[in-house]
Amino acid sequence: MIVVTGASGQLGSLVIEALLKKLPAGEIVAAVRHPEKGAYLAARGVQVRQADYDQPASLASAFKGADKLLLISASEVGRRVPQHRAVIESAKAAGVGLLAYTSILHADTSPLPLAAEHQETESLIRASGLPALILRNGWYSENYLAGIPTALQYGVVLGSAGEGRIASAARADYAEAAAAVLMLDNQAGRIYELAGDQAYTLGDMAREISQQSGKAVAYQNLPESEFKAALLGAGLPEGLATLLAESDIGASKGGLFDDGRQLSRLIGRPTTTLAAQVRLALG
């Protein structure tokens, strides 16, 4: 039996869909904070169990009988370490056979401040003694492509990534990889550095948007403080604006680049191209 945490989230729901192509629904557990959000999965035969990272008692029952557990990193930046610790301890108590964790690309050397909580979580996993594998996910292309409507409105893509090359992939690509790994044997101790086959700069992305939309869109590189101010001016919360600006600076230092192609090998096909994702985002 495979348990997926955060199963109603953007990545978790895609992992469940990928697993449903490989396993009977009854062998999959969708662990969610609010079970009503998993009702559509329950209707398809998936076991839906309540699991709240902040309520360890709920984790014990959610993980019961699990052969493998996918810990999808929590979304609350700054609170991830205690939440992940609760999952790791509950997984060990439940006798989970293999713990898989979605970390960040090159977590041990990443220049992104976002990597710190992932580094600490990886240390907690090692210290637990649980058989484990680490899926170090690169950037989701959707993180940037969500800004296409604004780019078209103002004719500019703003950022602080400079000429940093970004080897992003579609969220669905990473989900397929997680499902594929969970179906494999002898994975304890493995670390996968997962990124897209095609790397691009934000300038390349702006040109792709311009070409496909027929509207002039340019990339404007800003100092970190100015980019953060622009994000705040657009209505983003302080924490998210800081995270995005810091991540762009990390990208400028190579933090979002990898050319090992482990992701495409796991999913058995090339990763989704930037051009294809821009086309989809433009409708």
Results as ranks from 00 to 15, higher is better:
Ala180Cys: 02
Ser141Leu: 15
Gly203Tyr: 00
Ala195Gln: 03
Ser141Met: 14
Asn221Ser: 15
Glu193Trp: 00
Leu243Arg: 12
Phe227Gln: 10
Gln153Asp: 07
Ser141Pro: 00
Gly239His: 00
Ala167Arg: 00
Ala146Glu: 06
Asn143Glu: 05
Pro223Arg: 06
Ser128Phe: 04
Gln119Pro: 04
Gln198Ser: 10
Gly203Ile: 01
Ala206Tyr: 02
Leu231Met: 13
Gly159Trp: 10
Glu142His: 12
Thr150Ala: 09
Arg165Phe: 07
Glu120Cys: 03
Glu238Asn: 11
Asp197Thr: 01
Tyr154Gln: 15
Leu232Ser: 02
Gly203Arg: 05
Pro149Leu: 04
Pro223Val: 03
Leu243Cys: 02
Lys215Val: 06
Gly162Ser: 09
Leu194His: 06
Gln119Tyr: 03
Ala188Thr: 08
Glu120Val: 14
Gly155Val: 04
Leu135Thr: 03
Ala241Phe: 08
Ile148Cys: 07
Asp204Ala: 02
Tyr192Lys: 04
Ala230Gln: 08
Leu135Asp: 01
Ser128Val: 06
Ser213Glu: 15
Gly239Thr: 02
Leu184Thr: 14
Tyr219Glu: 06
Thr242Trp: 13
Gly162Val: 01
Ala161Leu: 08
His118Gly: 11
Thr201Arg: 14
Gly239Ser: 01
Glu226Cys: 02
Gly233Ser: 13
Gly129Asp: 03
Tyr144Arg: 12
Leu182Gln: 05
Ser247Arg: 10
Ile191Leu: 04
Thr121Glu: 02
Gly189Gln: 12
Ala195Arg: 02
Met183Leu: 15
Glu246Ala: 09
Ile209Glu: 08
Lys215Tyr: 01
Ala175Asp: 08
Ala179Met: 09
Lys215Ser: 11
Asp173Cys: 09
Ile249His: 05
Glu226Leu: 12
Ala229Phe: 14
Glu193Lys: 02
Gly129Lys: 10
Gln211Tyr: 14
Gly189Tyr: 13
Gln211Leu: 15
Val156Ile: 07
Glu208Trp: 03
Leu124Gly: 04
Ala245Leu: 08
Val181Met: 04
Gln220Glu: 14
Gln119Cys: 08
Lys228Asp: 07
Gly147Glu: 11
Arg126Gln: 15
Val217Pro: 03
Thr150Asn: 05
Glu122Arg: 13
Leu240Glu: 00
Ile148His: 07
Leu236His: 06
Gly239Tyr: 00
Ala161Arg: 06
Ser128Glu: 08
Ala169Ser: 15
Ile209Thr: 13
Val157Phe: 13
Gln220Trp: 11
Pro131Ala: 09
Leu182Pro: 08
Ala180Ser: 12
Ser160Cys: 14
Ala245Glu: 13
Ala230Glu: 08
Gly159Leu: 07
Asp173Asn: 05
Ala177Thr: 01
Leu202Phe: 06
Lys228Asn: 08
Ile134Cys: 01
Gly196Ile: 03
Ile125Phe: 03
Gly239Val: 01
Ser210Ala: 13
Glu142Gln: 15
Ala241Trp: 13
Tyr154Val: 05
Arg165Gly: 05
Gly138Glu: 11
Leu133Phe: 11
Ala172His: 09
Ser213Gly: 02
